[in-house]
Simulated assay, not measured.
Amino acid sequence: MLERPGFIFFPGCRASAYLDIMQQLTMPPACIVLMQNPLAERGIQAASSHPLVQRFYQPDADIEAFCQQYNVPLYVSSAQSINDAELTKLLLRQGCRHWLFSGGGIVQPKVLATGLKFLHVHPGQMPEVRGSTCFYYSLLHDLTLAASAFFLEAELDAGPSILCRHFHINIPPALLSSDFIDYIVDPYIRAETLKPLWQHWPDISDVSKVAKLSTPPSDRPCYVMHPVLRAMAIQRVAASYNASNETGVFHYA
């Protein structure tokens, strides 16, 4: 049996979307460790200003109010990197082996070697679609969108997938932008993939499902993407809009 995970809250849209899922389910983590992210405000403001954001999640999460509501221990760290030595010591002191990861860099092998297990949700079908910009490449390649939950391993994007969920975007072209994709769609599909695992934890084997619907956009991980290709991906999503169907981002497999 797995203990209730702790939550490493790296301020930003992804962490806020995860907290929103916990609020919906009324299922808090064992504790929350709050990191620092001086760049968080850009994404939070971009998400908050979009007219459709309330359909997806609350980007301006009040972490202190959440902890008070559910009596969750909150530990504040000065760390801006997931690999900060003091942060690792803080995590180890809490007694949680499993932690929900929400950003702060690439977890280094020395941190994984401590025995801590980091649950991560990747914005692509694993292992076929890898890399930080892979969902843009998938949208451009075959108009698919997915997220996969797995436990981090030393090799980047290499852990066996626990659950993969696929999504379809149907948004009016006038409301589509890179900000919408980066700060609303990306955190939302990660949170929606996390949701069944969080709801059924520790019996995650009961919800494990690895659907294979995306084809690899490249034989290499997808990282840097030229702005022109990014615009082309958004244009492809815009061209797929069907005004007769409901507006939103929908899980379909």
Rank of each mutant, 00 (worst) to 15 (best):
P109A: 01
Y136P: 08
L116T: 07
H120V: 11
G115M: 07
S138R: 05
L116C: 06
S81T: 11
E64V: 11
L116N: 05
A79P: 02
Y137D: 09
R55E: 13
F135N: 02
G103H: 08
Q80K: 15
S78Y: 13
L112V: 06
A85V: 13
V129T: 10
S49V: 07
Q80G: 12
L91D: 00
L87K: 09
Q58V: 09
P109G: 00
V76A: 08
P51F: 10
I82V: 15
V121Y: 06
E128G: 07
V121P: 04
L116K: 03
F118L: 09
T88L: 10
G104V: 06
E86K: 14
F118T: 02
S81C: 08
I82P: 01
G103R: 06
V76M: 09
F66C: 05
S138G: 11
G115A: 04
S77R: 09
L112P: 02
A61H: 04
L74Q: 02
P51A: 07
L92P: 00
D62Y: 09
K89M: 12
V121W: 03
S49M: 10
L92V: 08
S102W: 00
T114M: 07
C67S: 03
R97T: 14
I63K: 04
T133C: 12
W99Q: 01
Y57T: 02
S78P: 05
W99D: 02
R130S: 09
C67M: 04
R93A: 15
C96E: 07
I106G: 01
T88A: 09
G104P: 03
H122R: 13
P51N: 10
C134A: 14
A61R: 00
L87F: 11
V107K: 00
D60Q: 15
Q80P: 04
N83A: 11
A113K: 12
F135W: 07
G104L: 06
Y57M: 05
T133S: 15
R93L: 15
Q80Y: 15
Q108S: 13
L90F: 07
E86Y: 15
K89Q: 15
Y57N: 03
P51Q: 09
Y137M: 11
S78M: 11
F101E: 01
R55T: 10
Q69G: 04
P127T: 06
N83C: 11
Q80L: 10
G105F: 02
C96H: 08
F66Q: 00
P127D: 05
P51Y: 11
K117L: 12
S132V: 14
K89P: 06
P73H: 12
L90T: 12
S49E: 13
A79Q: 04
H122D: 05
Q58R: 10
F66G: 01
G104D: 11
S138P: 02
A61S: 12
D60K: 14
R130Q: 15
E128F: 10
Y57H: 10
P123Y: 00
I82S: 03
E86L: 15
W99N: 04
P127R: 03
F56N: 03
Y75T: 13
Q54C: 13
G95H: 07
R130A: 04
T114A: 03
L119N: 01
S78R: 15
S102P: 05
A113S: 12
E64L: 07
P123K: 00
Y75A: 03
I63P: 05
Y137F: 14
G115C: 04
P127I: 06
D60I: 07
L116V: 10
S77M: 06
E64M: 00
H98N: 12
